[in-house]
Design a protein around this nucleic acid. Structure first.
Length: 863
DNA sequence: CAGTGAGCGAGCTTCCGCTTGACTT
């Protein structure tokens, strides 16, 4: 029987430490916080010194019970939660819950999970630092008060279920402000000079030497003048400047930097990065992944150096100890690194392998020598234009150092052409001219945040913690909340001019390039900018980027014992609360009206407006309309914003949907919906091909589309009673059966496909999915399938349980016999409203008001 | 894949930080 119980936060950590400490210690985990403020609105008694009401989190009851049992069994309990504010609080909450005395229970800390570090920690126990605990309580209570009171204002003034908080609201504001910066950015055109000379290289072959003008030229006329002056000029090398250059590796990963690099190099979302890292951590391959520290343990540094020496040789080793510089770092852990640096790869899925490789390389590189380069700048004079020169640049890698394994990538895809080696050149050398170009370029607006880019910015501002970066990003993009959306945008072609001087002739060309292609960047929605502006207007202090940093200083004072936590809360809360009350009572609902113009014919105003249901364009105001007439509304389409939409675009929203006519006594209409422009034929929707303007679709064209579709939908054969259809889609020719698309391999001809061949294809596909397929109801998106643990119901994208037979799980055979009705009933038990076409809107007449409700009604005073 | 759009009504929603839950492809 163990004499000691040691409690840490993470179960994976517990496992490792148990090995280090031997059989006198049982090591268990708290799984993070075990208690939190009560869920409801009464958890903080503001009038009573902000006294907080804590409860054990429902999902932690089991953990707490197990820990209690352990406490009874052992002689001594050691609290070994993380060495930061939250960790200290967890220890204190554990004392409270487990009935331990915080003044005498042993508290130990270590920043690295290594045997010496833990043995040393056990030699130096202290007790729980109540000042630090109070700093955490202040943080927790402040976040609750700010979050709930701001959210409640939004419910009243904007829309229910919205949320606001110290972290998320600032994150949204960053995205909103970036968008405004981009919208107000005026791109300027300029001309860039690039000349090519014919020079001999070391092997005597003629190669091109590229040189660029040092200044931007403003207009086409100036560019032409420049080129004209160059006709017949001599180009002589005036100077050659050779400079040694060093590049040093970046620090090992933190949560924020791994998110950025995995985003740039692997295209991972921050969530995918964290999920993958968690798996690697649980498997014991990497150290803890939620960290703000760039520090490596001494044992790690030693083994990394050894590994580098083994792999690349001694001269590649350079021991580095990185110093943290992030605003709000608490550094309770190490940087993210492989636990065993000898493992260059690990088992696991593709994501795990790739992320691990990235971590391994970054860690190795961080302890490697600088890369040494030699940068050459050649200055070339133009005989006809004294004072003006061209520059050629070259870079030679003298020693690769850490570049042997790792190069950090850049977020902004600036044209960072690799500069190569220059041919041999001498000062005074005259260069044979080949050609010169003046190309039109454009200044670029700032780029929108990627998920990881936003995390980086938040970290710089000291807002949020490693464990919350990914959840915060998800939160502001959440369905229903939708302050921010991640989007791709197709680019648009842009014309640019190019002037070329060759053989003493100047020629002009107009070319085209794609511009504005966007992949996975964050855009604010109109709800996002509305809420952000509203909060900014009334709560500028909390929306200030410096707010967190300022209160962090006060939390530090509390932690140092020089400030009382409830006093700090009082100083903050009461003025804040006064603004809350004032805003609740008097602030206008933000409608964000913007007049776009007058409608032709009626003369009614056309304006944008924010409604409870989202952003709209409205025609006609109550003052203009004749009594009984209602304003007309149109919803904005994805990608449009009430902030930027203009008259012409706005009026188009009212042109669709449009009825084109009748065909076979069914209505034919054209419109544009959530999934893009469509032609509707009776109940059937047919997508209009990409690039075709729905407004230009005539009845004739619509019938074409309908017939095309009918050809695809017309059954050409059947299998097991279900029709087979065929067509050509995005991925080539297919046949479709029972809602399943089956690709037609090249050896078949789609046109002449026989029913037998189709059956062959279907059976082939089914064989592949034999394990999955049992029964399928195509129209209902319901199927019964066979999973690893037996049969289950797939309903849309959900996987649901099957009913039990005599308390037993159903066999696949039994499951296959179920009728659609039985299955639907089972689904309804698990997913309420699963088959409700539309939620019943009309409610039963209001119940008699309960006395309490009546009192509340009377108490509410309208401004 | 359209229509709703104001405000009320009754009772719901909401914060930030720590952790890993878990029955399925």
């Amino acid at each position: 029987m163990s004499k000691n119980l040691l409690i840490v936060e993470s179960p994976a950590k517990a496992k490792t430490i148990e090995k280090f400490l031997g059989k006198d210690f049982a090591v268990r985990s708290s799984y993070g916080h075990v208690r939190d403020l009560d869920k409801g609105n009464q958890a903080v008694d503001v009038k009573n010194g902000f006294s907080p009401k804590y409860t054990i989190s429902p999902e932690k009851h089991k953990v707490v019970k197990e820990l209690k049992d352990w406490v009874k069994k052992v002689d001594e309990v050691w609290l070994a939660t993380d060495e930061d504010r939250e960790g200290e609080a967890i220890s204190w909450h554990l004392c409270e819950v487990l009935g331990l005395d915080p003044k005498s229970t042993k508290r130990i800390v270590f920043r690295e999970i290594t045997k010496p570090a833990i043995e040393k920690a056990v030699q130096q126990p202290r007790t729980v630092d109540l000042n630090l605990v109070n700093a955490q309580q202040a943080r927790r209570v402040l976040d609750r008060l700010v979050g709930f009171e701001l959210s409640e204002i939004l419910w009243k003034k904007v829309k229910g279920k919205l949320s606001a908080g110290r972290v998320q609201s600032v994150a949204v504001k960053l995205v909103v402000e970036k968008e405004r910066e981009i919208n107000s950015f005026k791109s300027e055109a300029y001309f860039k000079i690039e000349a090519l000379f014919d020079v001999k290289n070391e092997q005597g072959r003629t190669v091109s030497l590229k040189a660029e003008g040092t200044d931007r030229i403003k207009t086409e006329m100036d560019a032409e003048t420049f080129l004209k002056k160059c006709i017949g000029a001599a180009y002589k090398i005036q100077s050659i400047d050779v400079k040694p250059l060093k590049r040093r590796p970046t620090a090992p990963f933190t949560t924020s930097t791994i998110q950025q690099e995995a985003s740039r190099k692997l295209g991972f979302s921050v969530n995918r990065t964290m999920v993958t890292a968690q798996k690697l951590y649980e498997a014991g391959f990497i150290t803890y992944m939620r960290t703000d520290s760039i520090n490596l343990s001494e044992t790690a540094i030693a083994s990394i150096s050894q590994e580098i020496e083994k792999l690349f040789g001694k001269k590649y080793v350079e021991v580095r100890r990185f110093k943290g510089k992030s605003a709000n770092a608490q550094e309770a852990h190490e940087a993210i690194r492989p636990t065993y640096i000898e493992n260059q790869t690990v088992p696991g899925d593709r994501d795990e392998k790739r992320l691990y490789e990235l971590i391994w390389k970054r860690t190795i590189a961080s302890q490697m020598a600088d890369a040494e380069l030699e940068k050459t700048v050649v200055d070339i004079g133009i005989s006809t234009q004294p004072g003006v020169s061209l520059q050629a640049e070259g870079e030679v890698l003298k020693f690769d150092g850490f570049l042997k394994v790792y190069l950090e990538s850049n977020d902004d895809d600036e044209e960072d052409e690799a500069q190569g080696v220059l041919p041999p050149l001498k000062v005074g050398q005259v260069l044979p001219f080949n050609q010169m170009k003046a190309t039109e370029r454009f200044t670029r607006p700032p780029s929108r945040y990627s998920e990881a880019g936003l995390v980086k910015k938040l970290e710089e501002l000291g807002i949020g913690r490693p464990s919350t970066y990914a959840p915060t990003i998800s939160k502001i993009m959440e369905e229903g909340r939708g302050y921010v959306v991640k989007e791709n945008r197709d680019g648009a072609p842009r014309a640019f001019r190019e002037l070329t001087l060759k053989d003493a002739q100047i020629s002009k060309k107009e070319l085209s390039e794609m511009t504005g292609v966007i992949k996975g960047r964050l855009f604010p929605t109109d709800m996002g900018s509305t809420v952000s502006d509203f909060l900014d207007q009334h709560f500028d202090k909390i929306m200030d980027y410096k707010f967190t940093a300022e209160i962090e200083k006060l939390f530090d004072d509390i932690a140092a014992g020089s400030r009382e936590w409830t006093e700090m809360l009082g100083t903050f809360y009461w003025p804040f609360h006064e603004i809350v009350e004032e805003t609740m009572a008097n602030a206008d609902r933000p409608t964000r009206e913007r007049i776009l113009g007058k409608e032709e014919g009626t003369g009614y105003s056309v304006l944008t407006r924010m409604t409870r249901l989202g952003p709209v364009v409205q025609i006609g105001t109550p003052e203009e309309l004749i009594p009984g007439e209602k304003p007309r509304y149109a919803n904005l389409k994805p990608g449009q914003s009430i902030e930027t939409i203009e008259m012409e675009e706005a009026m188009k929203l009212f042109e669709l949907p449009k009825i084109l006519g009748d065909y076979r006594s069914q209505e034919v209409a054209v419109g544009t919906g959530r999934y893009g422009p469509y032609v509707r034929f009776g109940e059937k929707f047919i997508s209009i091909p990409k690039g075709e303007d729905p407004l230009s679709v005539t009845l004739e064209r619509a019938l074409e589309l309908i017939e095309e579709r009918e050809k695809v939908d017309a059954p050409v054969a059947s299998y097991k009673g279900f029709p087979i259809t065929k067509g050509t889609g995005r991925f080539g020719p297919f046949i479709k059966w029972n809602d399943t698309f089956i690709n037609v391999p090249k050896k078949y001809n789609l046109e002449t496909l026989t029913p037998e061949e189709m059956h062959e294809l279907i059976e082939g596909k089914m064989e592949k999915e034999a394990n999955r397929y049992i029964q399928n109801w195509p129209d209902e998106k319901i199927s019964i399938e066979n999973g690893r643990w037996g049969p289950f119901i797939r309903f849309k994208k959900d996987m649901l349980k099957l009913p039990r037979l005599d308390g037993q799980k159903m066999s696949p055979e039994d499951a296959a016999l179920l009728s659609l009705e039985d299955v639907k009933k089972t689904i309804e038990e698990q997913v309420p409203d699963a088959f409700a076409k539309k939620a019943p809107v009309k409610k039963a007449p209001a119940k008699k008001a309960a006395p309490k409700a009546a009192a509340a009604k009377g108490a509410k005073v309208k401004k």
